[in-house]
Simulated scan of single mutants.
Amino acid sequence: MARDILAIPMSTSISNSAFYIEPMTINSIFDGLDPDIIEASTCGGDWLDNPTRITPNKDNDHSPEPTYSPSVFAGTYSSLETQEKHAPFTADTVLMLGNPVSTSCPDPLPTRTATEVVDILRRNEAQGLQHNSMRSQEYSWSPPPSSWLKFNVGAEVHDSNTFLAAVVRNDVGDVVEAGIALDNVTSSLVAEALAFKYAMNLIKQYSVRKAIIEGDAPLVVNALKGRKTDAPLEINGIVQEVFAVLDTCTDTIVDFSCVNKSCNSLAYDCIKWATRNRFWGILPISWFTGASFIGPTCV
């Protein structure tokens, strides 16, 4: 406060010209400006030339919190610009990670070298690639263990007919058997349960020793994996029939798996072809090339 009072000039005349008799002229820069604007410009220039930190008034409990004048921020930016201009960027250059306008956090953010930032970016990229790989595995078919066969099953209801499909592949992904069965149910859930029963009958027919039946019907798979006797009433009878067939295959190990529908794409490709051509029965292996089904245009 003393500085503000003592800085008030005792005279409006410049000290060097106080005893001159020549008339004074107003600088053309200030000619026409409002006095309030001149005062604000003068005070603003004084504040910018002498950066100070406003301290709260101890006698006033409602005084504002301490803030920084714009000149502090201007100095921060100019110092960074000076560093960029005179210091070459190298791998050991320190990158200042912080928010110069924030005064609520007393502790500055940690500084990192360019090498550390590059390492962080590479780790994030690797984690992103790993995440994408996990997602792609989640939505793609996976082979069974060695010496096992995987039966991918699917079902679709078309008008008054229900088409059931089972595609059998070995541990290297080759199709070893595939078939289409026909039924007349109208419930999609019942159709899915019948697809598992169809695969179980194929396992018994061909005396398969180790098999995985994989579908995209969670209710059916949960009932089969837990050997539930209280499965949903709509499919409980079919689930018990699957257990009855399994109990007759004393030397057979069967597991049940639920996957995303995209993992059963080959089974549904067979169903689409069968509905167009009104076909059911065993599909020739020659109609499969790798993970694709290429059936004739008509039968």
Rank of each mutant, 00 (worst) to 15 (best):
L233Y: 11
D61C: 13
P110M: 11
G281V: 02
C105G: 08
I26N: 09
G44N: 15
D171G: 07
L233H: 08
C298P: 04
T250G: 04
A199W: 00
P23K: 14
G179I: 04
S142Q: 15
L95H: 11
S265H: 09
D174N: 05
C249M: 02
H158A: 07
T186D: 09
S11N: 13
D34Y: 02
N60K: 12
A244P: 00
F163S: 09
A40H: 05
N170K: 05
E84F: 14
A244D: 04
D46L: 13
Q205W: 07
K272P: 00
M134N: 12
W148Y: 03
N277P: 01
V176Y: 02
F151W: 15
T55D: 11
C258Y: 03
I271K: 03
P232S: 08
D92P: 06
H62Q: 11
V185N: 02
L80T: 10
I253R: 04
D183S: 04
A40G: 06
C263Q: 04
P70S: 06
N170A: 07
K261T: 12
C249N: 03
S257D: 02
F293Y: 13
N57G: 10
L266R: 00
M96P: 06
L48M: 10
N132P: 03
N222D: 14
V101S: 04
I26P: 07
G179F: 03
G179D: 01
G32K: 03
D4C: 11
Y77V: 13
C105W: 05
V101H: 08
N132I: 11
G173H: 03
D31T: 10
A87L: 12
N184V: 06
V239E: 00
N170M: 01
S262H: 08
K261V: 09
N236P: 08
P9V: 13
P100F: 12
T115C: 06
